[in-house]
Design a protein around this nucleic acid. Structure first.
Lengths: 140, 140
DNA sequence: GTACATGCAAATGCTTTGCATGTTT
DNA sequence: AAACATGCAAAGCATTTGCATGTAC
């Protein structure tokens, strides 16, 4: 999903393409290798561009609703976002040192048999794998 | 792990078995079929027993450190706890309607090959499956 | 008696809400 | 001009911290 498609998606939904939205999307597209918190996003915005943190909160939530962003809640309960280019359900390897992420596909739901045994109807799942990426293993 | 073992574990670690700890453990052991937030635990404590919510925070964290509790962060970023009797790494089917949980074992890490491809060293992972339990499917 | 625990108050940090003003269309 | 968006201020929660007092051992 490129930027133009995102802009037209925003307009389709009756929303407006503002300077703030563009800035936030730029930051996210420059940081697709990690999950950014709202605070992180704010720090990546050039200082001469005043943007209220509330605007970031509102926009990342809106973007997530549009399927533009993937979100996850980190260990400290903080929500983090990343541009979702794949548009196919997938998961992340997350480096606990540098925060870098790598996608991997979702398949082989071995737990389906346990769900079935228990009469449990799965609606969705969350899976994240934490560890050290290649670079961070050598640096420690 | 029964209650007596828990008490001796607490003592082993140089900590003390107080009335408050006992009450918290009782609440958790009466609710092993769901994950309770600190606020939930407080609500389950008899009203004639004054207990500061800070005490609950401190104790559930301590218990988690001792391996007595399993914790997870819910959709709203709130930490929830459950007594961990299994002491073997496992995961949960979580009912999004009533909150009831069911354990299932952890095995078959299909993502290992993706981790290896990326030179990623896995340290741990989080997996939770959400949906509707048997009872809640019929009630809707 | 001593070391650990608790209660209370206050602070912190993330996130949400209300409302007046600004801006895109 | 109208509808949507932003900025600012303030509130709402979950959680943490500091410190004096209480209590298990």
């Amino acid at each position: 999903m490129n930027v133009k498609k995102i802009y037209s998606l925003i307009k389709e939904k009756g929303q407006r393409v503002t300077r703030q939205k563009q800035t936030i999307l730029t930051v996210l597209s420059n940081n697709m290798d990690r999950m950014l918190s709202v605070h992180d996003i704010k720090e990546h915005i050039p200082q001469d561009q005043h943007m209220d943190i509330v605007t970031i909160y509102r926009n990342v939530q809106s973007f997530t609703g549009l399927g533009i962003l993937d979100s996850m809640i980190d260990d400290r309960g903080v929500t983090r976002y990343v541009l979702d280019n794949e548009h196919q359900h997938h998961h992340y390897l997350v480096c606990i040192v540098c925060g870098r992420i790598t996608n991997f596909p979702c398949h082989n739901h071995y737990w389906i048999s346990y769900a079935r045994e228990n009469g449990f109807q799965e609606l969705y799942h969350k899976l994240e794998v934490y560890g050290k990426c290649g670079r961070c293993q050598s640096n420690s």
